[in-house]
Amino acid sequence: MTEYGLPLLGGVLIGLSATLLLAINGRIAGISGMLHSLVHPVPNQTYWRWFFLAGLLSASFLLKMVSYEAIEVPLPHPLWMIGLGGFIAGIGTRMSGGCTSGHGVCGLGRRSPRSIVATVLFMFSGMVTVYLVRIFAEPY
């Protein structure tokens, strides 16, 4: 059970983060939207997004410094595939209005029909994509 204890705890922290942001700020913790505000600032509503992103990033760097070993053997996917994936995900999040955090963590929490549909769909197409990559790109 310890194997999944940390992921569960990490998930709870993510849920608490989203809850805190809603309680304080009345906003959904959607990372894709926050990243988008870096290139398209929202008038009067930009800075809290940047502060959130800075907080997220600093947690990651801080934990790295206390040498938390999170990373296993890297998958040998080429970098272009990672870049292309980012590009397609960037278009997709703008079209659907959210990603794993906005639709997944927050949207499911407020029982939004749109978010439930979106989460099922991106999990599904993600699974199909990983399957196809494994079949056609093996052994990379």
Binding site: G86, A89, S96, S101, F122, M123, V133
Partner: peptide
């Protein structure tokens, strides 16, 4: 919403990274 979510999943699966 439907097309966007499907696309996001494809990108997620290709890269292994969502935005956070």
């Amino acid at each position: 919403l439907i097309v966007g979510a499907l696309l996001f999943g494809v990108g997620w699966g290709l890269s292994g990274y969502c935005p956070g």
